[in-house]
Nucleic acid binder design. Structure first.
Lengths: 255, 255
DNA sequence: CTACTTTGTGTCTTGGTTACGCAATGGGGC
DNA sequence: GCCCCATTGCGTAACCAAGACACAAAGTAG
């Protein structure tokens, strides 16, 4: 598999669906901060979203799942496409040409990697603590970055990230969020901090609890989180059945 | 232009972005019914969504606008991408091969038109009365179809249509709808019927009025619709500035 | 001119949201 | 070891939006 990846640039032609890629915005939650998994581009100061190409006979969704698995080691992740980025100048060929040169691949303007690429953006929600970040063959590093201090990104990846966050906020309005982002057991303040971080604003503690409990997707356990300072809060977990149901039906219609 | 279109199948290679298309679900509103513009496929009983390909150096969004303009004659249409359909078997090559044969183009398994296509779905909202449906070179007819009696569609176009409707309903929940679908001046019952049709359910006349007025995007005129039976209803129009603002900010947060 | 449909406006009730108050808890400061 | 205090759990009053429904005014059909 690694061997295969090393050779992507050389043998991509004929292997992948032409002129098309997927890019994933992988959200995690740690230390009360929303974070994003980024790759450090080899031989450049820029960072990039984890992405990849779609095999000729592969479902586009499957390709995104494959990318996610190879960067995080995780399977069975919450994943959703949110936007296709199709401006003709979004993938500057100069950058890709440089990459080819680095690999000492002879220059050919018809090389598949030098064509225009359109990319489908996905966002994913993962449990930060169970991820083992793994760089791919074009990167030197794979690290979590705080949303507040994202480094310079290659191409239009900043816009993709921005749009992903927008889509995530929108989802919050009509679907539950939290499973996949939190550990199995969590406290109410933890869940609240997650919501506050995504929304970028503070919420009233007591009203938050009432509203989220009214969704009827949580189960309070008989345990409390011990060891921490102050009063020990109850632990909760999602009722997966009801959570799934809420995902499908939506939380509030509006009409 | 027509000449160009006639030759698409022959000279598409090198002209279009490979393996990629756009399909548009064009919604109109007439006689209290939501309708969709469909094309009758030449030499087949199936119908299809208006679609097209993306020029090598064209913005994907622009391509959709171009398709819309050439089918409806309209410019400046509300248009939004909603989903990418990327299953590997979604475009059956047998159908496309048949098309090529009809055009007496020699069979070549590497022909661009016989490759796998992934397609980006757009939905558009248009003023029914100002549309002049025009078939393209692959179709015998271009007609409005009532949502309740859609004919058999080619490939996965039924799913695309279904998903478009879903996206439209979702938009209704957090953004205003009506401009683009109604004439400039309209009555409250007309707007209500539009909402009812999209949602597929009846709404209370008085509560609807209160809610929609609370959005503060409508202006009541001093005119009434005369000539119709019964009490003459007031005419309204959208306050474009506030309408636009509501589109961007959303109507109700949820949080 | 009368009957009937449709529109314009208002009210009552209900349920959810917002803005707080207060007691219980449990670790840290002293 | 004891008190302080931030944090948690639970509760309440004011407020607003939504649903259900009543009634008068307008305008056409017969």
């Amino acid at each position: 598999m690694n061997q295969e990846k090393e050779d992507i640039l050389q043998y991509g032609q004929g292997t992948f669906h032409p002129g098309f890629s997927v890019d994933c915005v992988i959200f995690g939650f740690h230390a009360n901060q929303l974070r994003v998994l980024l790759l450090k581009v080899k031989g450049d100061d820029l960072w990039a979203l984890p992405g990849g190409f779609v095999f000729k006979d592969e479902d586009v969704e499957e390709a995104a799942i494959r990318v996610l698995k190879s960067r995080t080691g995780l399977d069975n992740i919450f994943l959703r496409q949110f936007h296709l980025f199709g401006k003709p100048d979004r993938s500057k060929t100069s950058f890709n040409a440089k990459l080819l040169k680095q690999r000492q691949i002879p220059y050919d303007e018809n090389h598949w990697f030098l064509q225009r690429f359109i990319t489908l953006g996905f966002y994913a929600l993962v449990d930060y603590s169970s991820v083992t970040p793994r760089p791919d063959s074009n990167s030197e590093a794979c690290e979590w970055w705080d949303l507040q201090q994202i480094p310079a990104l290659m191409q239009d990846h900043s816009q993709i990230l921005e749009k992903a966050l927008e889509a995530l906020r929108l989802q919050l309005a009509y679907q539950p969020i939290g499973y996949n982002l939190l550990a199995e057991k969590f406290t109410m303040p933890e869940l609240q901090k997650l919501y506050e971080t995504i929304l970028g604003k503070q919420l009233d503690r007591r009203n938050f609890q009432r509203k989220i409990l009214a969704y009827d997707i949580l189960e309070r356990l008989d345990e409390r989180r011990s060891g921490v300072a102050h009063k020990a809060p109850y632990l909760y977990r999602f009722n997966l059945e009801k959570y799934q149901q809420a995902l499908e039906q939506g939380l509030e219609g509006g009409w």
